[in-house]
Each structure stands twice: as structure tokens, then as C-alpha cells.
Amino acid sequence: MGKLSEVHPGNYVFYDAMQSIIGSCSLDDVAVRVLTRVIGHCPHRNQLLIDCGWAGISLDGAGKLPTGYAVIEGHPNLKLLSMTQEHGRVEPISGPLDYSKYPIGSLLTLIPYHSCATAMMHPVYHVHSEGCLLGKWTPTRGW
């Protein structure tokens, strides 16, 4: 029998929105968040443009969450509808968007549907608690 040389713990470390759906955890237990900035208002489409696309958060979860590809923390009426490589389109689940609540430059916090795929897209993890940065973790890469 060989020696263990590598471990890929997956959701055991972070959890994600998928795990909250199946009851393994609550959304409050999910340790992965992706911050994104509102970079545009699109009133003709009733949408916000954000600076996070599939290169920052996985395309996993399409059609599996009522909120699209992620849960937008603190905004249960918003849906991450679609993404290009570097941008996302957010719209309300129902009704018109109140753009005054989402000024250009404001931050939104995304809880990914799949944390493993999302975590692989980032070279460093910022570890914080209660608004204080505690450190940075650099994940080991390679399979």
C-alpha cells in the first residue's frame, strides 16, 4: 500500500450553496465568498453589470438556484442571470430594479453554487472574520 501524498477535501473545507440546498449546512456555514463590484446600470434590460464572470465564479449551478449561478448575500430578490468570462448580469427575480440601492462601485457578495470550482479560480484566499483580515492563504496547485 502506498503512502498518502495528496488530499483534495472539496466541500469539506468550504461548503457552498449546493451543500446548503441538500441540507449539509446553512448558508451561514459557507466559508467562500466572492466580492464583486457593480460596474454598470442597464435600465433597458432591468439589470446590473458586475465585474465578476465565469473566470471568478464557476458556471456550475445553472438552473439549480432560484438566484442563478450564486446566492447574492443580503439580496434575496437578485439573480446572477448570466456571465461572460469577466462580467455578470444581475437582475431582480421580480419587479423593477431600484438602481439607487446599487450605485456604480458598490460591492455585492456572491456565495457560489460550487465552492471547489470557484476556489480553483483564485490564486490567494483572504481569510477574515467579523470584517477583519486575519491572513492570506495560498492554495497548493497541481494534480
Rank of each mutant, 00 (worst) to 15 (best):
M1R: 13
M1V: 09
G2V: 05
G2F: 01
K3R: 12
L4H: 04
E6P: 02
E6N: 12
V7N: 09
H8M: 11
P9V: 00
P9R: 00
P9S: 00
P9D: 00
G10H: 02
G10L: 04
D16Q: 01
I22R: 10
S26G: 11
L27Q: 05
D29N: 12
V30Q: 06
A31Q: 14
A31M: 12
R33E: 09
R33S: 04
L35F: 11
L35E: 15
R37F: 00
R37E: 13
R37K: 13
V38I: 08
I39C: 05
G40Q: 12
G40M: 10
H41A: 06
H41P: 07
P43Y: 05
N46E: 11
Q47L: 00
L49N: 12
I50K: 10
I50W: 08
D51R: 07
L59T: 04
L59R: 12
G61Q: 02
G61L: 03
G63K: 05
L65Y: 05
G68I: 01
Y69W: 01
Y69N: 05
V71T: 05
E73K: 12
G74C: 07
H75T: 02
L78R: 08
K79L: 15
L80M: 07
L80Q: 04
L80V: 07
S82A: 10
M83W: 07
E86H: 15
H87E: 11
H87W: 01
G88C: 14
G88L: 11
R89W: 15
E91G: 14
E91H: 04
I93Q: 15
G95W: 06
L97W: 06
D98H: 09
D98C: 08
D98Q: 13
Y99W: 08
S100D: 02
P103V: 04
I104K: 03
G105H: 09
G105N: 10
L108G: 09
L108D: 09
I111L: 13
P112M: 07
C116K: 14
C116R: 15
A117D: 11
A117V: 01
T118F: 07
T118L: 05
A119R: 10
M120W: 05
M121H: 02
M121G: 04
P123F: 02
V127A: 07
S129D: 15
C132A: 12
L133G: 06
K136N: 01
W137A: 14
T138C: 08
T138G: 07
T138S: 10
T140R: 15
R141T: 07
W143I: 14
W143M: 09
